[in-house]
Simulated scan of single mutants.
Amino acid sequence: MTFQKELRTTERISSIEFFRPQYENPWTVPNLLCMCRILLAPYLGYLITQQHFDLSLGLFTLAGATDLLDGFIARTWPTQKSALGSALDPLADKILISVLYVSLTYAELIPAPLTALVIFRDIGLIAAVFWVRYKTVPPPVTLSKFFNPCYTTAQLKPTLFSKVNTAIQLFLVAASLAAPVFHYTDSALLQCLWYVTAVTTAASGYSYWHYGRKTVKVLNTRSP
């Protein structure tokens, strides 16, 4: 029994030494901009359900500007780039897109099956992110360690399909918000955009499944 206990202790120590913790400052400008987009999402959804499309379109444009700005800052100033940001930026996009698609479906501007496809894909990706986090946090995994934004374990690398799909999904949101403002809700081009978005959403989900581990860079390495 003593030998087995020592063996388990040795295995536990070895598994812990497999990881080298990396810490970073989560309070960067890009990360704060991402948080602003997340906080803005429910308010935008409320405005859409109340059919304040003019204001919704203006705030959505502002949200899009913050998305471009946080990426520019992260690329220009290395100190502003973080592993947390690599996960927070797409998470903010997914939360914003999901809320807007549900709201636009409620307003009868986007079909329900397309919204269901978008949300189903995003739920799968978010679940995958949590699974990667769980597998890369050094044991023992605790809630404080799991949700500690300063404790970085992996960096996400979105696929090309995912980047294109996000752009198309956001373009559809902008077009749908502008439709009642500029009176083209029955446009055939808008309906064609629904099908294009559905195809790119499905292709993006498949690309993550196909490339798998290539979309994740584990930052923890074996200690020398």
Score class of each variant (00 low, 15 high):
73 I>D: 02
159 T>Y: 12
75 R>L: 14
20 R>G: 11
58 G>H: 08
150 C>L: 10
123 I>W: 03
25 N>K: 08
81 K>E: 00
198 A>R: 03
145 K>D: 10
112 A>H: 08
224 P>M: 03
121 R>A: 08
144 S>G: 04
49 T>R: 07
8 R>E: 12
196 V>I: 15
23 Y>S: 14
50 Q>T: 09
4 Q>V: 05
206 Y>I: 15
7 L>W: 04
11 E>C: 09
29 V>M: 06
76 T>C: 07
115 T>P: 07
51 Q>H: 13
132 V>N: 06
143 L>E: 06
148 N>F: 02
18 F>A: 15
189 L>D: 06
143 L>Q: 10
14 S>G: 07
153 T>F: 02
128 A>T: 12
34 C>F: 01
57 L>M: 11
122 D>E: 13
102 V>A: 09
52 H>R: 12
67 D>W: 04
4 Q>T: 11
10 T>H: 11
222 R>N: 06
202 A>W: 02
66 T>K: 05
93 D>S: 02
96 L>T: 07
91 L>T: 13
57 L>G: 06
47 L>A: 01
110 I>W: 01
202 A>P: 00
214 K>M: 14
74 A>C: 06
53 F>N: 05
109 L>W: 10
192 C>Q: 09
179 A>G: 07
161 F>L: 15
176 S>L: 06
143 L>W: 14
213 R>D: 12
134 Y>S: 03
110 I>N: 00
154 A>E: 09
2 T>A: 13
190 L>R: 01
16 I>K: 09
152 T>D: 08
5 K>D: 14
207 S>K: 07
118 V>L: 05
34 C>W: 00
106 Y>T: 08
2 T>N: 15
117 L>W: 02
103 S>E: 04
149 P>R: 04
116 A>P: 01
76 T>E: 09
183 H>V: 14
96 L>I: 06
151 Y>Q: 13
21 P>R: 10
170 L>R: 11
8 R>L: 15
21 P>S: 07
187 S>R: 12
